Amino acid sequence: MSEDEVARAKALARILGMTLSDLIRTLLQMPTSSVGEGGNLIVIDRVTALKLSREMRRWGHHYNQAVHALNPIAYYLRANDMDTSDVLEELDRTSARLAAMQPGIEALRCEAEAISERSIAGIGR
């Protein structure tokens, strides 16, 4: 390792509250598939992972609600049992459910962007 790489490793270990040996042991436990040429590994803490997971579940719930709202529209349209006002009413209801997804989608997008843009000051390449 170069002197610069050793200094970066020591700084990272210090920031993480680890010894250099503990840092190296932790890195050695990573799956080989996660270490690629030119790739960046992003480590997410448990709190952030739980937030993302919870938001993804919420997003999935809203998505399922929207799809379920569209199913009767498609069914009744195929059977010619629905008039224009009924279709518009169902579409408005579905639109509202999709709009309810937007805050969650935006929060998830922002969190994912923040994670991908984070770097430890002074440690990045």
Rank of each mutant, 00 (worst) to 15 (best):
M18S: 06
V47Q: 13
L98M: 13
L98R: 05
R14A: 12
I44L: 14
R54E: 09
A74S: 07
R25Y: 04
N71V: 10
S119G: 15
A13D: 00
L41A: 10
A9R: 00
E55A: 04
Q102C: 08
C110P: 07
M82R: 03
R25D: 11
Y63P: 01
V43S: 06
E5Y: 10
D45K: 13
E117N: 14
A9F: 01
S2V: 05
A107E: 03
T48C: 06
Q102K: 14
M101L: 13
I105F: 07
P72N: 09
E90P: 00
L23S: 00
G104M: 05
A99M: 11
R109P: 00
R14L: 11
G122D: 08
E3L: 08
S2I: 10
C110S: 12
R78P: 01
N71L: 15
G38W: 02
E3M: 12
A96V: 10
V43R: 08
S95I: 11
L23R: 00
R109L: 14
P72K: 11
G39H: 05
T19C: 04
V47R: 14
S95A: 13
I120T: 15
K51L: 09
S116K: 15
S2A: 05
A11E: 03
V67A: 04
A13H: 02
I15M: 13
A7V: 11
R118I: 04
L77Q: 12
H62C: 06
Q102H: 14
L16E: 13
S85M: 11
L52A: 02
G38C: 04
A99H: 15
G104Q: 03
Q65A: 02
L12A: 07
R58M: 04
G122K: 11
L20R: 04
A112R: 09
D4R: 10
E117A: 15
A112S: 10
